[in-house]
């Protein structure tokens, strides 16, 4: 039997970039990037389960320059995905659909994600260095 082709999502490259569409695709990209963080979370927990000598390896990696760079990127991507996820929840209950509201919430979401990342690292590092 011949299958009829089902409709698929429109491609990114067809549209001229707008704030709304760019924020939308970054939601996906941050989500995909965060999966590498889940892999590291697994390895971190498994190394702890394997014993102190293996846990020392993951500590060595996380406190390397690559580790810090990844932690910085993950923390921002996490807050981005979290803030935009909350934006999506408002849409899910039917709020904020007007063009003006989507742009305003988009700008607010980016500012909130930057602010939360700065707050997290600011508070964390302040406690770390005063300890």
């Amino acid at each position: 039997m011949a299958l009829r082709d089902r409709p698929l999502s429109p491609h990114l490259l067809i549209y001229r970039p707008q704030l709304t569409s760019v924020l939308s695709i970054f939601h996906r990209l941050t989500g995909v990037f965060l999966i590498s963080g889940t892999a590291l979370l697994c390895l971190w927990l498994l190394s702890a389960a394997a014993g102190p000598e293996y846990y020392a390896w993951s500590q060595w990696f996380l406190t390397s320059w690559l580790g810090y760079a990844l932690l910085g990127a993950w923390s921002y991507c996490l807050f981005y995905h979290l803030c935009n996820g909350i934006r999506h929840m408002f849409w899910d209950i039917g709020l904020g659909f007007s063009l003006r509201a989507t742009y305003a919430s988009g700008v607010l979401m980016v500012l909130a994600s930057l602010g939360l990342t700065a707050l997290s690292w600011g508070i964390g590092l302040a406690f770390y260095f005063t300890q």
Binding site: A48, P52, Y55, A56, Q59, S75, L78, L82, G85, I86, H88, M89, S120, I123, G124, F127, Y128, Q131
Partner: peptide
Amino acid sequence: TSLMLVPLTLWFVASVWWLVIGGATY
């Protein structure tokens, strides 16, 4: 799962910082 992950990830980030501040020992 999104709804669950909002408080859970915030708790996790705070916990990791708490561990780091304590020296991140085994």
